[in-house]
């Protein structure tokens, strides 16, 4: 019943190309349209003006194997961990034995052995988000969209899951578009960092991270390049974050 939804310009001239197997982080003040960007690419929100192409096809097509990790885990509460992990394979019609075997393997990668039979309510927030990751990765997507996937976790859990995901990514190299408001996370994980302005979102700046891989989070944090990038991005964001805050107040 939202007939009188206001027309808002959410994004403004966002021009972005993701290379194959590239990890790109997007940082920006809250409400700058970061999530909308992902929804455009996933085909969840129709694009009003401009064009989005996913592997040469319009968004939302079945040809493009695309994964989406949501900010909240989006697990089906009535399915146990294993049943949640197989859902995309199940929807595709892959045989039960095969999909369960693939799901078990991915759950092992995420350190969730022995929790296959647990319902989402029976496991911790960090584990839920790992199930959500496993569910996305089991489908072997070429492009993974991630919307502040670790934003709701406590600091220690967050570090552990970041390590886990970093290791997985460095072994498998998918294209990743990673939205976050955590600058350290953006720099430590990505090949390239984009900085967005407050609404309507524009790309303010772009940084090549240039820290060699494989990385470990502890090492990265002590590198001069990390500090340098972190400071530069914060300089860009500071003004925008203030604007966004005043806009709310």
């Amino acid at each position: 019943m939202d007939r009188q939804k206001r027309q808002l310009q959410i994004l403004d001239h966002v021009d972005l190309t993701l290379k194959e197997a590239e990890f790109v982080s997007v940082v920006g003040p809250s409400g700058c349209g970061k999530s909308t960007l992902l929804n455009f690419i996933a085909g969840l929100t129709p694009v009003q003006s401009g064009a989005v192409e996913v592997f040469g096809a319009p968004p939302g097509g079945t040809e493009a194997p695309l994964g989406y990790v949501f900010q909240q885990h989006a697990l089906l509460p009535w399915r146990n961990v294993l049943q949640n992990t197989v859902i995309s394979l199940e929807v595709k019609g892959i045989a039960k034995a095969e999909r369960e075997q693939r799901a078990r393997e991915m759950l092992t990668v995420m350190g969730l052995d022995g929790f296959e039979d647990h319902f989402p309510r029976e496991i911790s927030g960090g584990m839920r988000q790992r199930v959500s990751l496993a569910r996305t990765l089991v489908d072997d997507p070429r492009l993974i969209l991630m919307d502040e996937p670790f934003g709701a976790l406590d600091a220690q859990t967050k570090l552990l899951i970041q390590e886990m995901f970093l290791k997985y990514w460095e072994e498998n190299r998918k294209s990743v578009l990673f939205i976050t408001h955590d600058l350290a996370e953006a720099v430590a994980l990505a090949d390239r960092v984009l900085v967005m302005s407050s609404r309507p979102g524009r790309i303010l700046a772009e940084y090549e991270v240039g820290i060699p891989r494989p990385r470990t989070l502890d090492q990265v944090r002590h590198m001069p390049r990390f500090t340098e990038l972190h400071d530069a991005i914060w300089e860009d964001l500071r003004g925008e974050a203030l604007k966004a805050m005043q806009g709310r107040a």
């Binding site: 949501f70 859902i87 929807v91």
Partner: peptide
């Protein structure tokens, strides 16, 4: 939860699959 419906749309679930699952 609309988030669950979105999740199903991303994995290209058909309408009847969204209904049953």
């Amino acid at each position: 939860d609309p988030q669950l419906i979105n999740m199903m749309r991303v994995i290209h679930a058909k309408r009847y699959q969204v209904f049953y699952k």
